[in-house]
Simulated scan of single mutants.
Amino acid sequence: MKPYNTDQSKKEEVRTMFDNIAPKYDLLNHTLSMSIDRLWRRRVVKVVRRAKPRRILDVATGTGDLAIAMARRIDGVQVLAVDLSEGMLDVARRKVEARGLDGRIVLDRADAEHLDIATASVDVATVAFGVRNFGDLAAGLRELARTLKPGGKVVILEFSRPANPIFRALYEFYSCRILPRIGGLISRDRRAYEYLPASVGEFPGPAEFLKILEAAGFRNCKARSQSFGIAQIYVGER
């Protein structure tokens, strides 16, 4: 699915959408999630830190929250953080500079499916809430695999549909009815906040996504449910 259903490709629409909502993205993201997204990112950082990486690639970095968290909590690490949206990167640059991390984090505009990064050059690749926005999911995952050194890890944080039917119904009422109204009012782009929860429903479930990861070149793939299945942390090895 696409945010606006125009003649543009999904990739072009996603870039336009995030450029539109970038100024209010952090406010809405943390408010509408009641800051539980911060907890999930901390857990991702713990997983990444155990791999003892020196160089991390953070794809679909958005406003840089995960890249910043990894640079602050993992000693000596260098993070290359890329995103398709220049609007989101502008916000990320201001945050990185404000925290004095511009020597540890390099921000660049890039397409997840065509990364200008050497093969087998990074220790860990991460994506937080970005893979479901890839224009071509399989191609994007293969590109992540290409950049990783043998034995390197991919760590992906993404939303999922809770398995419990009662909890799922409550979650989907909030995300599909309440979230678009608030998000649309504040960002002035309601279609963006209709697309974001709807895209979760269309994204493969954990078991299916693990198979997709394996097909892209990863092994020992596992999913770790977060907050009753609202999100998953996927881990795979190159």
Rank of each mutant, 00 (worst) to 15 (best):
I117A: 02
I233Q: 07
L137F: 01
I182T: 11
F218N: 06
G229C: 01
Y174G: 08
L32F: 00
N164C: 01
W40C: 04
S160Q: 09
A110L: 04
S35D: 14
M17I: 15
A51W: 08
I166P: 03
I178P: 01
F129D: 00
F203H: 00
D136C: 09
V14G: 10
G130K: 09
L157M: 10
G135L: 04
T119N: 10
D111A: 06
R142W: 05
A223T: 10
R38T: 14
I212Q: 11
V154K: 01
Y171H: 10
E86A: 05
I36H: 05
P165Y: 06
Q78A: 11
L185Y: 14
I68Y: 07
E158K: 07
N20C: 10
P197C: 09
T119H: 12
K24D: 00
T147Y: 00
L115P: 03
S160H: 02
L144Q: 13
V59A: 03
H114D: 14
I56G: 06
Q78V: 10
I166D: 10
L115G: 01
D90K: 13
F159S: 05
A112Y: 07
K211D: 15
S160T: 13
F209V: 01
A145D: 11
I212K: 06
A207E: 15
R190Q: 14
A192P: 10
R188V: 08
V47D: 03
V59Y: 08
L66I: 11
V82M: 03
E97Q: 13
A163Y: 01
E237V: 12
L170T: 10
L115Y: 06
V77E: 02
F173N: 13
R109W: 06
R181T: 14
K95M: 07
F173I: 12
L137I: 08
G183R: 08
A112N: 06
A163T: 07
S227V: 11
T31I: 05
I156L: 09
A169T: 14
T63I: 13
T16V: 15
R224M: 13
L32N: 07
I68W: 08
L66D: 07
E172H: 09
Q8V: 00
K11L: 05
H30T: 10
V91I: 15
R168N: 09
L185V: 12
